[in-house]
């Protein structure tokens, strides 16, 4: 039977000062889900980057917005799910056109994609909001 467990979700205001809360939530959740430290580190980085993108580019400074974050483990997969209500904004594509070398921004998605698998589902008539999933296979991960 597949091992499945999850951590109670949290909801944060869409403000950059909340990134510390997000990182703490992922770290604590990884401990509870027995996720190895090196995988936890990679997940913290990816979630931080994507939350930052949603706050800055999705909500565009509208601090009344919120992001809901859930962490779960399904078998060998550890999955963080971010839900937000910002105008449809694809964090997976947003940085892809920005030249990376010597540019001040545009590196977040590159880092996130380097350490995790990212999937984005924009809000629709059938969904409550935008959903971004960040997953890492514990058996397939080779990140340091």
């Amino acid at each position: 039977m597949e091992r499945r467990s999850s951590i109670p979700e949290i909801e944060i205001p869409a403000r950059l000062d909340q990134l510390a809360v997000v990182r703490s939530y992922i770290e604590q959740g990884c401990m509870e889900l027995c996720v190895p430290d090196r995988i936890c580190w990679a997940l913290v980085l990816a979630v931080d980057e994507l939350c930052s993108n949603i706050i800055r580019h999705g909500y565009q400074g509208n601090s009344s917005g919120v992001i809901t974050i859930r962490l779960e483990r399904q078998g060998t997969m550890v999955i963080a799910t971010l839900c937000d209500q910002s105008p449809a904004f694809d964090p997976v594509r947003s940085d892809s056109t920005v030249p990376v070398r010597l540019s001040r921004s545009g590196h977040g998605l590159l880092l996130a994609n380097h350490v995790a698998t990212i999937h984005y589902q924009p809000k629709s008539d059938r969904s409550q909001g935008n959903t971004t999933t960040i997953s890492i296979d514990l058996e397939g991960a080779s990140h340091s």
Binding site: L45, S103, R104, S105, L110
Partner: peptide, 16 residues
């Protein structure tokens, strides 16, 4: 203890 892309972007923005 930790750096994200925003921190790295500061270096990028000043080096030249």
């Amino acid at each position: 203890d930790y750096i994200s892309s925003a921190g790295l972007g500061v270096f990028m923005g000043h080096i030249e």
